[in-house]
């Protein structure tokens, strides 16, 4: 309250106190957020890394064993199978989510009757809790009571039910399909918002310039939506790569570890099996992949901007 200080002192610069220094004040303002981040993100993360260097099991604090957990994993066939599964799961699922989600976004972005309702329906797979919707799929893919098998058999196309989750290849395809089903709305809604920001007169100008629908997509839509597409894809890669509940509910990583991904494998070893150290080491493998994809995306975004 300097208003009371009338007279000659009015023009004199106020003394620079600790609070006036840019760095200090900024730090203080971000402090609450910093504390939350430290407690909720950094602490569990560092603890996880630490655990991966110990032989901790549930109920007993372990001791430092260096890289032993990692070396054991490198010699484990299940670990390499899990790594393969995770990459396969992520690449295939994200690829189809992107293609189908983008396609759906373009279709829904058109003007048609009842588009509000259809757009709301598209969101459903995303807003229904995964645990719930996955149980429905579990039934759809049941080896005896599958409605798909029932339908195909009644149509005379099959003689016996399909074992959706019983064989390694079928199980992988099944969980990937469910993941695609659940993830499409994220792409659709995100990209639809992006499409709506593109100025319609650009397409009119392109019409006059003689652009075909494909040229308009390639030369206008795609470049203008690319930054958003990159962000959405990165998020989807992160979520898919670190997925857990969908697979845990449907297959628990089976049959014969064919659908184990890092998340489920880590959980199985650490919580179900009690080997916290080993489980932490498995989940540590998720981190570098996510880190790299974030770096690539942010590089890409900077170049665009």
């Amino acid at each position: 309250m300097r208003s009371g200080n009338a007279g000659g002192g009015a023009l004199k610069a106020p003394p620079v106190g600790l609070l006036q220094r840019k760095g200090v004040l900024g730090f203080l303002f971000t402090l609450p957020a910093d504390i939350i981040l430290l407690l909720l993100l950094a602490y569990p993360f560092v603890l996880g890394i630490w655990l991966s260097f110990t032989n901790t099991i549930i109920g007993r604090s372990g001791s430092f064993v260096g890289l032993e957990n990692y070396i054991d994993l490198f010699h484990s066939d299940v670990f390499w199978l899990t790594a393969f599964n995770t990459v396969l799961y992520t690449v295939v699922a994200v690829f189809f989510k992107l293609i189908l989600g983008f396609g759906l976004a373009i279709v829904l972005n058109k003007d048609f009757k009842g588009k509000g309702l259809i757009r709301a329906i598209v969101l459903l797979p995303w807003i229904v809790p995964t645990a719930l919707s996955t149980i429905a799929f579990w039934w759809i893919f049941d080896s005896n009571f599958s409605c798909i098998s029932w339908l195909l058999m009644h149509l005379g196309l099959m003689s016996h039910p399909i074992d959706f989750l019983g064989s390694p290849v079928n199980a992988r395809i099944s969980v990937i399909i469910v993941n695609i089903w659940r993830g499409i709305p994220f792409f659709t809604i995100g990209l639809m918002a992006g499409l709506q920001t593109i100025n319609q007169t650009l397409y009119e100008a392109a019409d006059i310039d003689g652009a075909t629908p494909w040229v308009k997509f390639k030369s206008i839509t795609l470049p203008l939506i690319m930054p958003l597409l990159a962000v959405i894809t990165t998020f989807s890669i992160i979520w898919t790569f670190a997925d857990f509940q969908l697979i845990w509910i449907m297959t628990r990583g089976g049959p014969d570890n064919a659908t184990h991904i890092f998340g489920t494998f880590s959980f199985q070893r650490a919580i179900a099996g009690g080997h916290l150290g080993e489980g932490a080491a498995i989940s540590a493998f998720i981190f570098p992949v996510l880190f790299i994809s974030v770096v690539i995306t942010s590089k890409f975004l900077k170049r665009e901007a």
Partner: peptide, 15 residues
């Protein structure tokens, strides 16, 4: 595109 016209838009519509 086949009318052999060119249009200048209010918001320019530059790509």
């Amino acid at each position: 595109k086949d009318r052999d016209i060119a249009m200048v838009f209010q918001n320019y519509a530059l790509y």
